[in-house]
């Protein structure tokens, strides 16, 4: 990874102190007596706060907050394609996903690392099917996502946030993409996992540990994004996908409401 020479960076090989704290009770089990640590039910999602249109310079923007997960998104365009090689008769969408340097437990670099690049691609693939790209030929729309604080499911929150921002920007879409995630932990399924509950390969030893993230367009019932991690049984993973779909359906009216409200306040 080439380092940014224009900024003064800390030493290259620092480690977060959190790695060395031996907190066995967190590592041992994510459930306390069959209940989640923050007191939620297994299928209960965290309270959702949505606010479209808060960045005034951007064409469209949105902010999402789910307890400690905070994501902000700005959308610019449609605007001219800068590079001549990128010319195409269809509209183009670009996504840039970035964790703010202070957003995670470990410090993030100023430049995109491999994980952020991967998330950018996933986000792009989640949004592309929803956007009517043929409406803005020879132009592009840029989506910039910044995670301000990461407390689990940054990708799912970003999908929701970005599609809200696209809608706020007035980009024509077939539907809003709603993201949701589930953590699979043995026989139980934890919807909308927090950072503590999220899947980390090093802590898990058994089969059926993992996570699923989906992006759903609820009114046309199409899945635009689907990723999973961890070794999971076929039946369990199908069940998890179904659960995620249900969660998306539940969240959908909230999104619609937020958009309608924002339009009302604008006029």
């Amino acid at each position: 990874m080439p380092l940014d020479s224009r900024r003064i960076c800390g030493p290259e090989s620092t480690q977060s102190p959190h790695i060395f704290t031996v907190n066995k009770d967190i590592k041992s089990d994510i459930l306390l007596n069959g209940e989640r640590k923050d007191g939620r039910k297994l299928d209960q999602i965290r309270p959702l706060f949505l606010r479209p249109g808060l960045i005034s310079q951007a064409k469209g923007s949105a902010y999402i907050e789910q307890n400690h997960t905070k994501v902000i998104c700005a959308v610019y365009g449609p605007r001219e394609v800068m590079r001549k090689e990128d010319f195409s008769m269809k509209g183009q969408l670009t996504c840039e996903f970035k964790f703010a340097t202070f957003s995670c437990k470990k410090k993030r670099q100023h430049q995109q690392d491999a994980e952020e690049k991967d998330l950018s691609v996933q986000l792009l693939e989640a949004l592309e099917p929803a956007v009517q790209l043929d409406k803005f030929p020879k132009a592009q729309v840029n989506v910039y996502i910044t995670v301000l604080q990461n407390d689990g499911i940054a990708l799912a929150a970003s999908i929701t946030c970005a599609s809200l921002a696209l809608a706020d920007a007035g980009i024509e879409m077939y539907d809003i993409v709603v993201g949701s995630s589930a953590r699979i932990h043995g026989d139980v399924m934890l919807v909308d996992p927090s950072e503590e509950e999220e899947y980390r390969s090093q802590d898990c030893k058994d089969v059926n540990e993992g996570k699923v993230v989906i992006g759903l367009m609820p009114s046309i019932n199409q899945i635009s994004a689907l990723t999973s991690k961890g070794e999971i049984d076929f039946e369990t993973i199908s069940q998890a996908i179904k659960t995620c779909i249900q969660t998306c359906q539940k969240v959908y009216p909230v999104l619609q409401n937020a958009l309608v409200n924002s339009v009302k306040t604008k006029t």
């Binding site: 693939e125 099917p129 089969v207 699923v212 019932n221 899945i223 689907l226 999973s228 179904k242």
Partner: peptide, 23 residues
């Protein structure tokens, strides 16, 4: 027969039923 990773790719979207079929 366990699934260690899943990823949808491409610029189209998929119906949930067809996803289960594909899986």
């Amino acid at each position: 027969g366990t699934i260690s990773a899943l990823k949808k790719e491409g610029w189209g979207s998929l119906n949930p039923e067809s996803i289960f079929d594909m899986m």
